[in-house]
């Protein structure tokens, strides 16, 4: 039933983008998102388009995969575009009943749609090119400063990575428990909402019990292997910047400056 489920969206390719340090990619995603808010002009958007296209090309992610990522959000995007279309004041192009579509509105709507699509694409590149583990590593390292205000960053990262490890195991278990209860005559798609909620109990409780059991076994196993939190730990593959990472930072900086310049001087185009 759930056997087909795959975890995360990671798409394996040997590309320069895949190899980049996850911290660079995190920073890159952040910069790209900010730049989209700056680029409210044709040149700005063009610049962002070229940048995004180059990254997709470099990462070797098929375009249909990128498009597929946008689909679930299409409704929200079109919905907000619709409001922009009618809700913006300016020179009216045509009027339907009380609402008029303005020249500015059309411009705004197009910009909004493009920017939102880019936003989704930009962030999904991050998940397409980074394994969940590397992402966790990157987050742990870049958020390390939070340790100073007593946020246990290492522990949170550890929880995330263990959760990632156990999701497929628990999905498989869920499938098995559902089938076992179905074999005892349970059904999960009959009746109204309340009845349906009640039908979940025979699945949820065993799953919960099993998770607790697994957690306690895992805790022993981790203790046996000397786990005692983040202090004094070494890492097999510590995150270390290489030349390509510095170059990527440089490119990101250039792109950001370009976008700021365009935002200031090319606003009216």
């Amino acid at each position: 039933m759930f056997r087909e489920m795959t975890l995360g969206q990671y798409y394996h390719r040997d590309s320069v983008i895949h190899e980049l340090d996850p911290r660079v990619k995190l920073a890159g995603t952040l910069i790209f998102v900010i730049s989209l808010f700056l680029g409210k002009s044709v040149p700005g958007l063009l610049c962002a388009t070229i940048f995004l296209a180059l990254i997709i090309l470099l990462a070797g992610i098929p375009v249909r995969l990128m498009v597929r990522g946008v689909k679930p959000l299409l409704f929200i995007i079109l919905f907000s575009a619709f409001f922009n279309l009618f809700g913006t004041e300016g020179t009216a192009v045509f009027t339907i009943w009380h609402f008029s579509v303005t020249r500015e509105g059309i411009r705004m709507a197009i910009f909004l749609v493009v920017r939102l699509i880019y936003l989704v694409m930009g962030t999904s590149i991050m998940t397409y090119t980074t394994t969940p583990n590397r992402l966790t590593d990157g987050l742990e390292k870049s958020l390390g400063f939070l340790n100073r205000i007593h946020i246990p960053v290492h522990e949170i990262a550890m929880i995330m990575s263990i959760a990632l490890r156990f999701i497929p195991i628990l999905t498989e278990e869920l499938d098995k428990i559902m089938k076992a209860q179905m074999s005892r005559g349970a059904s999960f798609d009959e009746g109204n909402l309340v009845q349906k909620a009640r039908q979940i109990v025979p699945v949820l409780i065993p799953l919960f019990v099993s998770s607790v059991r697994r957690a306690s076994e895992l805790a022993y196993a981790m203790e046996a292997r000397g786990y005692h939190g983040g202090s004094g730990r070494t890492k097999l593959h510590p995150l270390r910047y290489e030349r390509r990472d510095y170059m990527a930072y440089a490119i990101l900086l250039l792109y950001m400056i370009l976008m700021i310049v365009l935002a200031i001087y090319a606003r009216s185009f």
């Binding site: 990632l164 490890r165 697994r214 076994e217």
Partner: peptide, 12 residues
């Protein structure tokens, strides 16, 4: 331990 799934911590 007995259950191999419950003692593997790493994702690789």
């Amino acid at each position: 331990f007995q259950n191999p799934d419950n003692q593997i911590v790493g994702n690789t």
